[in-house]
Computed example of a mutant assay.
Amino acid sequence: MTTNEQGLSGERADIIELLASRRNFLRHTAQGLTDEQATTRSTKSELTVGGLIKHVSTVEQRWAEFAQGKEDAMPAEYTPEVIAAWQDQFRFVGGETLADVLAEYEKVAAATEELVRTLDLDTKYELPVAPWQPPGVFWTVRMAFLHIAAETAQHAGHADIIRETIDGQKTMG
Rank of each mutant, 00 (worst) to 15 (best):
G50P: 02
E71G: 15
E46A: 10
E60Y: 03
T43E: 12
K44M: 15
K54P: 00
S57I: 01
K44I: 09
A67T: 04
S57G: 09
S45M: 11
A64S: 13
L52F: 00
M74S: 13
F66N: 05
V49E: 09
V59H: 04
V56S: 04
V59T: 12
P75T: 08
G69W: 06
A64Y: 10
E77T: 12
V56Q: 07
V56T: 07
K44N: 15
D72R: 05
A67H: 04
S42N: 11
V49I: 08
A76T: 13
A73I: 05
T48G: 12
G50Y: 00
I53A: 04
G50M: 00
W63P: 08
A73F: 09
E71W: 07
S45E: 08
T43D: 14
H55M: 01
A76H: 14
A76W: 07
E71A: 15
V56I: 13
M74F: 15
T43Q: 13
A73M: 10
T43M: 11
G50Q: 05
V56E: 04
V49N: 07
V49G: 04
V56D: 03
E60F: 08
A73G: 10
D72N: 12
T58M: 10
P75R: 05
G51N: 06
Q61H: 12
S42V: 00
V59M: 09
V49P: 02
H55Q: 01
F66Y: 14
T58V: 13
T58Q: 11
T58K: 11
A73Y: 06
A64R: 14
L52E: 00
T48F: 10
G69E: 05
P75Q: 06
S45G: 05
A73L: 06
E77A: 12
A64I: 04
H55A: 01
G51S: 10
K54E: 00
L52T: 13
V49C: 04
G69L: 03
K44G: 15
G51Y: 10
E60W: 08
K54F: 00
G69Y: 05
I53T: 03
T58G: 13
K70M: 09
Q61S: 15
V56A: 01
P75L: 03
V59W: 07
G50K: 04
S45Y: 03
T43A: 11
E46N: 09
T48C: 12
W63S: 10
W63V: 08
E60Q: 14
S42T: 11
A64P: 02
G51A: 07
S42F: 01
M74P: 05
S57F: 00
V56F: 02
G69N: 07
R62W: 05
R62E: 06
A76M: 08
Q68K: 14
A76D: 12
S57E: 02
V49T: 00
R62L: 10
E65Q: 15
K70V: 12
M74W: 15
I53V: 13
E77Y: 02
V49R: 07
T48A: 10
E60G: 07
G69K: 07
V56Y: 01
